[in-house]
């Protein structure tokens, strides 16, 4: 599905470097990336999304080698296949909830706004329980509601892969559970892969897989999981 091999990335003018020998994310599974700050979890999300490109190694999603795409192609890849959820929601304050969810369609010419999109937004907002707030602006919503809007925006393009960077980081325990349940439920229903960076260890049992960046995976484990994927497919 999504496989990362022999990856090496380093930020210029920084000691930080990320090295991953081999990492595999299976379709429809939920993955939690944990580890101390600065261990490269968010960097990995950026690399997968094509926002940053690795110095060495390759990132392959299905048959696409993301690391070899041009910038425009990577943008196209992002918009058509990936949904993003951020810790600070990154909603646009001057757009109402409906327009915030619609945003991907407004900023990329590949996506056309039609009636289907509009009805999907309605369905998603009902699904996320924010259908009453469609005409409200983010400043009038609670933290939990804002993250639901952000999730709807991530899901509106029907992505195959959701990259969530600490989606529950700014939420109270009750909301944390709810948000994660929402994501899990959607991924299970739609067969979407979820890769989440998180520090909330109490939530980890709910994930299909937890990847700890403090002890990066050994080669044997990788092979084991590869075999498992082959058998399933």
């Amino acid at each position: 599905m999504l496989r990362i091999q022999n990856l090496y990335f380093k930020y210029p003018k920084s000691d930080f470097q990320l090295q991953i020998d081999d990492l595999l994310f299976n379709k429809g599974e939920t993955h939690a990336l944990i580890g101390p700050s600065g261990s490269g979890k968010t960097t990995l999300l950026n690399l997968i999304a094509g926002i940053s490109t690795p110095h060495e190694g390759r990132i392959k999603y299905k048959d696409i080698e993301v690391s070899k795409l041009s910038e425009a192609e990577r943008r196209g890849f992002r918009i058509s296949r990936i949904g993003f959820v951020f810790q600070d929601f990154k909603l646009i304050n001057y757009l109402n909830v409906f327009e915030n969810i619609m945003l991907p369609y407004r900023i990329n010419a590949r996506l056309k706004i039609d009636l289907q999109v509009r009805s999907r937004i309605k369905l998603l907002s009902e699904y996320a329980g924010i259908d009453k707030y469609l005409s409200k602006y983010p400043k009038n919503l609670s933290q939990g509601e804002r993250q639901r809007v952000a999730i709807c925006r991530a899901l509106v393009t029907q992505p195959e892969l959701i990259l969530a960077d600490e989606p529950t980081g700014n939420l109270d325990p009750k909301n944390k559970k709810k948000i994660l349940d929402l994501l899990f439920k959607y991924c299970k229903e739609e067969g979407t892969t979820l890769i989440t960076v998180t520090h909330d260890h109490e939530l980890l049992p709910d994930f299909d897989e937890v990847i700890d960046f403090s002890k990066l995976l050994s080669e044997d484990e990788i092979n084991l999981r590869l075999n498992k994927t082959n058998t399933e497919s």
């Binding site: 926002i51 943008r75 992002r78 993003f84 646009i92 945003l103 991907p104 900023i107 990329n108 925006r153």
Partner: peptide
């Protein structure tokens, strides 16, 4: 921050400049 978000989600710099 807003411009960054637009770019992450899938907007080109050209598009952002256009807006």
């Amino acid at each position: 921050d807003e411009i960054n978000t637009l770019e992450i989600i899938g907007s080109s710099r050209f598009k952002v400049a256009g807006i």
